[in-house]
Design a protein around this nucleic acid. Structure first.
Lengths: 214, 214
DNA sequence: CTCCCGTCCGACCGGTCGGTCGGTCCGAAA
DNA sequence: TTTCGGACCGACCGACCGGTCGGACGGGAG
């Protein structure tokens, strides 16, 4: 078996496969890998379980495909923000705005992203394509910070720690779901709350990262 | 409330019950509620599955007991930090230091805490005692921030958003596990990395929250 | 000694898990 | 008209799930 199994690129009838991914995304976000059976996905999509195994060779591959699609969306958004930015502060703001845009566009994404970080049977080959995309996203953010610090626009700070902080501030907040809503007393995903979170994050990091002689 | 079912306070032989909680804690942290069977817990502890059901009436109650114990530990730590603090900045630093101390003392706690936020079949009565403890922890942090802002020691900022940010900066970082380690190229839970994270978080939030005329 | 109660065990229950298999249907190619 | 392959289905498999049950063991009280 020399050839890679290239499971992803069959380009089947877009409708069913995409519906499966959408459904599985929200179910996995809520209940995790082990918490969602193929029967539940199939029933929720409205097809038979066999149809799922026709489109995805195993449960693990479905999980991986859901994650990869999600990460690719982030990558595209951040790449666009990166390209349009004309200085480090604008780039930082663009990262936050577009990352949060990507998160709120589909409420499953924040919990899904969090799960991907610790709900992983490592060395699982199926997950590694998605892993690589996620690495690329993080590397892009790190590079943006690095560049801003090198040019003096941003204060010198440990880049990796700052990346972790940025993810924590954005993803974590929108992953808290019902718990966060009862903490705030307002729906996390309303337009007003989204704007408030963006403003808070941008304000917070600009204060924390602005050059001392600003 | 007349007769609470008081499942927790049977005060059985501390050894087995505590070993069950320890084992379940690390397993739940890695694989989530649905990902850990009672057989797996029993085998890992070294007792029979029936012994588990002798100490905990159901899987859900075991899950809840693990979480409640974890949150109580946080509550105790933060309460101590709160009591010893003499001004708002010291209180903030104390919160961060002791929260991270609690996180790193047992690597299962960060992922466990994250899971508790979105891996919840809401209205599950078994979880509500643990929920209440977690609410208390968050309320304590919020009160500390509020007080510092009222006294002018801290800049006025949205309290709930700041709480979310603090949790994100601390818990999220230590929940990234193996993924974070390959991002940093160093073990997350080494003494040096723990110190670095604490310093980063404290530096970050003090810059972001210090009063403008500081 | 007997009795009892907390601790723990092996065997078992109905149900669900991921995954397989044989087969049907249907539109495009020949 | 026949053929063929992708999309999809119902039935089924062995393994495993959470939970129950009757009983074994042991130490302290009477």
């Amino acid at each position: 078996m020399a050839g890679e199994p290239d499971v992803e690129e069959v380009e089947a009838s877009p409708s069913t496969r995409e519906k499966i991914l959408d459904t599985a995304e929200s179910l996995y976000a809520r209940f995790g890998f082990a918490g969602v059976g193929m029967r539940a996905v199939a029933e929720s999509v409205g097809v038979s379980k066999s149809a799922l195994f026709h489109h995805f060779p195993s449960k693990r591959e479905l999980w991986a495909a859901v994650h990869e699609r999600c990460f690719l969306e982030f990558d595209a958004r951040l790449e666009a923000a990166d390209a349009h930015a004309r200085d480090a502060h604008e780039r930082l703001r663009g990262f936050v705005e577009s990352a949060i845009d990507a998160l709120v566009e589909n409420p499953a994404r924040a919990p899904l992203l969090l799960r991907s970080l610790f709900e992983v049977d490592n060395e699982e080959p199926a997950d590694q394509a998605a892993r690589a995309v996620l690495q690329r996203v993080l590397a892009r953010v790190a590079a943006g910070l690095e560049q801003g610090m090198a040019s003096g626009e941003l204060r010198r700070a440990p880049v990796q720690h700052t990346v972790q902080t940025l993810i924590g501030m954005t993803v974590f907040h929108f992953a808290t779901g019902e718990f966060g809503e009862e903490l705030f007393g307002a729906p996390l995903y309303s337009a007003a709350e989204i704007r408030a979170r963006k403003d808070h994050v941008i304000d917070f990091i600009e204060r924390a990262l602005r050059a001392s002689n600003d």
